[in-house]
Measured scan of single mutants.
Amino acid sequence: IRVTEDENDEPIEIPSEDDGTVLLSTVTAQFPGACGLRYRNPVSQCMRGVRLVEGILHAPDAGWGNLVYVVN
């Protein structure tokens, strides 16, 4: 998935696990201090948080898609 520190920055590609999840530790390896991800909902244009359970980030209902995710 494509992740950036700010919406206007160049994104970095972060690998997902075989089950489609992303480990928070993978994100923090590239973005120290990150505690989660958010993205701009293409329909509402509002920022939406990615579900985080026990250090594992779960894809939105429509999958990770071609969105750019921003670190929290």
Rank of each mutant, 00 (worst) to 15 (best):
L67H: 12
A29T: 11
E13M: 13
E54K: 12
R51C: 09
S44V: 05
V50E: 02
V70F: 11
G36R: 02
R51A: 11
Q45T: 09
S44Y: 05
G63A: 04
Y39M: 05
T4C: 13
G33S: 09
G36N: 01
G65E: 07
L23A: 12
I12F: 07
V53S: 11
Q45D: 06
A34L: 02
M47P: 08
G63T: 05
V22R: 01
V50S: 00
T26I: 06
G20W: 01
W64P: 00
I12D: 00
D6C: 10
G20S: 05
P11Q: 04
N66Y: 03
N41L: 10
C46E: 15
E54R: 12
E17Q: 14
V53N: 10
S16M: 13
V3I: 15
F31T: 02
S44A: 10
N72M: 13
R48Q: 15
G49P: 14
I56L: 09
T26C: 07
A29L: 12
V68D: 07
I1P: 02
L67Y: 12
D61I: 08
V43I: 14
H58S: 08
T4A: 10
V70T: 12
Y69H: 06
I56E: 05
A34P: 01
R48C: 15
G36L: 01
I14P: 03
S25I: 06
A59K: 05
I12G: 01
P60D: 01
P15E: 09
I12M: 08
V50C: 09
Y39F: 10
N41M: 12
M47W: 13
P42K: 10
E13T: 12
R48V: 15
P60G: 01
R51T: 15
L57I: 02
Q30E: 11
Q30H: 15
E10G: 06
A59H: 05
H58C: 06
S16T: 12
P32T: 06
S44F: 07
Q30L: 12
E5S: 08
A62D: 15
S25V: 06
D6F: 15
G33C: 10
V3R: 00
S16I: 15
I1D: 04
A29V: 10
D9L: 14
T28I: 15
L67P: 03
V22W: 02
G55S: 04
G36V: 01
R51E: 13
N41P: 07
R38P: 03
G63E: 05
Y69N: 05
D61P: 10
S44N: 15
V71C: 08
T26A: 13
N72D: 15
G20P: 00
C46S: 10
S16F: 12
R48T: 13
R38E: 15
V68Q: 07
F31A: 03
R40S: 08
V3P: 00
E10Q: 06
S44G: 11
L52A: 08
S44D: 15
R38M: 12
A62P: 11
V43A: 10
G63Q: 05
P32G: 05
Q45A: 12
V22M: 05
D18I: 13
C46L: 12
L37A: 00
T21D: 01
A29E: 13
E54M: 07
L57C: 03
M47Q: 09
L37K: 00
V70I: 14
R51P: 12
G63H: 01
D6P: 03
T28V: 13
L37T: 00
D19N: 03
E5W: 13
S25Q: 10
C46R: 13
R2D: 00
V27F: 02
A34W: 00
E5Q: 10
P32S: 07
S16P: 06
T21L: 02
G63L: 02
E5Y: 05
G20F: 05
A59Y: 03
D6K: 10
T21G: 05
Y69K: 04
D61Q: 11
V70W: 08
I56T: 12
T28W: 10
R38Q: 15
Y39H: 04
P60C: 04
G33M: 10
I14D: 02
T28G: 12
L24D: 03
Q45P: 06
D9P: 05
N66E: 12
V68M: 10
L24M: 07
S25C: 07
G63F: 12
N66T: 09
S44C: 07
L52R: 06
C46H: 10
E54C: 07
V50I: 12
F31V: 02
L23K: 15
P15G: 08
Q45F: 08
N66P: 06
N66R: 11
G33T: 11
S16A: 12
V27M: 00
P11G: 10
E13Q: 12
E5M: 11
V70E: 07
V70K: 08
W64I: 03
M47V: 12
R38S: 14
E10M: 10
T21A: 04
I56Y: 07
G65R: 08
L23I: 05
E5G: 12
I1A: 10
L57F: 09
D9Q: 13
S44K: 09
N72T: 12
P60N: 01
D9I: 11
T21S: 09
F31S: 03
Y69I: 00
C46N: 08
V50G: 00
I1V: 09
T4K: 11
P32L: 01
G65C: 07
I56P: 01
V22N: 00
V3Q: 00
Q45Y: 14
V3E: 01
D6E: 13
V68R: 07
Q45E: 11
V50F: 01
L23D: 03
S16G: 10
P15N: 14
I56W: 05
D6N: 14
D18P: 13
E5A: 14
V50D: 02
A59D: 01
L24I: 04
E54V: 00
E5H: 05
G49S: 15
I14T: 01
Y69C: 02
D18N: 11
V53G: 05
G20E: 05
G33K: 12
Y69F: 08
R48L: 15
A62E: 14
L24V: 04
E5V: 08
L24T: 02
V27K: 03
E10T: 10
D9T: 13
R2G: 02
L23P: 10
V68G: 03
V53T: 14
V50Q: 03
V50K: 01
A29C: 08
D61H: 07
I14N: 11
F31R: 02
V50A: 02
V71L: 04
P42F: 04
R48W: 09
G20H: 09
S25N: 08
L67R: 12
P11E: 06
G20V: 02
G49L: 13
T26E: 11
N72Q: 11
D18V: 12
G49D: 15
S25P: 02
A59N: 02
C46K: 15
D18C: 11
Q45C: 05
P15T: 13
L57D: 01
D61E: 11
R38F: 14
P15L: 10
W64K: 00
R40Y: 15
Q45R: 12
F31C: 05
S25W: 01
M47F: 14
E10K: 09
C35H: 10
D61T: 07
V50Y: 02
E13W: 15
L57S: 03
V71T: 11
G49M: 15
G49E: 14
C35A: 12
V53R: 09
L67G: 09
V3N: 00
E54Y: 08
I12K: 14
C35V: 14
G20T: 05
G63K: 03
R51G: 06
D6M: 12
G49H: 15
N8D: 08
R40H: 12
P60W: 03
R2H: 05
V71Q: 01
L52V: 06
V68F: 04
A34V: 04
Q30T: 09
V22L: 13
G20D: 05
S44M: 09
V22C: 06
G36A: 02
Q30I: 09
D61K: 10
I56F: 07
V71G: 03
Y69V: 00
P42V: 06
V3M: 05
Y69A: 02
Y69L: 01
A62V: 11
R2V: 04
A62Y: 15
R40T: 09
H58R: 07
D9C: 14
V43K: 06
C46V: 13
R51I: 08
G36K: 00
N72Y: 11
S25D: 10
P42T: 07
V53Q: 14
I1T: 00
I1N: 07
P11N: 03
E17F: 01
A62H: 15
Q30R: 15
Q30S: 12
G20A: 04
D6S: 14
G33L: 10
L24A: 02
E17W: 04
Q30G: 03
P32Y: 03
E10P: 14
C46P: 05
D18E: 11
L24R: 00
Q45H: 08
D9F: 11
E17K: 06
R40A: 07
E5L: 12
L67T: 14
P60E: 03
N41Q: 10
G55R: 05
N8E: 10
D6T: 11
D18H: 11
L67A: 10
P32K: 06
E10D: 10
I14K: 00
E10S: 10
Q45V: 04
N8R: 13
R38Y: 13
C46F: 13
A59L: 08
S25K: 14
M47S: 08
W64F: 02
I56Q: 07
N41T: 14
E13C: 08
R2Y: 06
Y69T: 06
G65W: 02
V70Q: 10
I14M: 06
C35Q: 13
R40E: 08
D6Q: 09
G20C: 04
P15C: 11
N66A: 10
L67D: 07
G65I: 03
S25M: 06
A34E: 01
A62N: 10
I1W: 00
